[in-house]
Design a protein around this nucleic acid. Sequence first.
DNA 1: TTAAACTTTCAAAATATATTGAAATAAAAA
DNA 2: TTTTTATTTCAATATATTTTGAAAGTTTAA
Lengths: 168, 168
Amino acid sequence: MQLSEAKQQFISAWGGFGSNWGINRTMAQIHALLLISPSPISAETVMAELNISRGNANMNLRELINWGLVERVMLMGERREFFSAEKDIWTVARTIVKERKRRELEPMLKLLDTLAVVESGENPADEKAFVDTIANIKKFSQHANSSLDTLIKADEHWFFSTLLKLLK
Amino acid sequence: MQLSEAKQQFISAWGGFGSNWGINRTMAQIHALLLISPSPISAETVMAELNISRGNANMNLRELINWGLVERVMLMGERREFFSAEKDIWTVARTIVKERKRRELEPMLKLLDTLAVVESGENPADEKAFVDTIANIKKFSQHANSSLDTLIKADEHWFFSTLLKLLK
DNA sequence: TTAAACTTTCAAAATATATTGAAATAAAAA
DNA sequence: TTTTTATTTCAATATATTTTGAAAGTTTAA
């Protein structure tokens, strides 16, 4: 396969992958493009490679920076900004886990706490099902939360090798 | 807090949670409604509780059944169908992991295999960055794939207690 | 300064996704 | 059978999200 074709396929697959995970297609495609670029690239290049507008490129690059997946790079002698992505996928994964934990899991835990205290009313069966479900989800989320905390801190080699040994 | 208000908040939060994960809001809300129902409920009830149309209810219930999260239940003496959701969140999580692995991770692994073989061309730096990235993602995905396989088979108590002991 | 190069913003337009509701289909009862 | 009840489908509509591009804002150099 030609490199250019392989690149195209990868960018497209990574975009599709992203949209399954609540990340917009273009943002994931820009990320893919940066992942396979040996050196930082400019907004112009992103626009040209993906055929998108300046505004779109700017907005999604900013969002990638917010997520901590991409950083601005100033190249010597160059006036404009360049962008570069973290290449190590384990680091990428940890960054994403960390962000999603903060944005989603933690608010959910907070909500579950407030929902756990329900006034006793006329409908004991409904009440029991509700309280039980909330308690169940809460317990699970707390487990997940602390597991993810450790995963974030862990080193890839240690984590996977120990986990796999354990799970085999 | 009143039960009815707590229910509303939970359904709404679960819906929001879902849309962050590529699952449509209504589908997640129906799932939430079923999670907190002590007994199976009819499509009519789903429509009334969530204020959605018959077609919408039907379509999303079917999708939940496809995911293996909800099942049809025939109640004695009742003509219409009722629906009921798996209540144990650990089981729910495993079901989702299993489905997403099949739908997303496995196709990605297949693609990475085909992308690994790139013809040697005029651009060695681009080529190296590409091949390295693909290899890196592939290795990571394979690890994730086998870890998830085992997680799917594991029992909650064993999994969390062993994992936590390990990670602490 | 002023001009040029570059970045950001945001309302409008385009696109994608979800929802409705009425008609078609299917299944059970009379 | 025919009638009644329930389910499914799907084109049309509504809603939400993404994208554009031109104008405004910034920064650097002349």
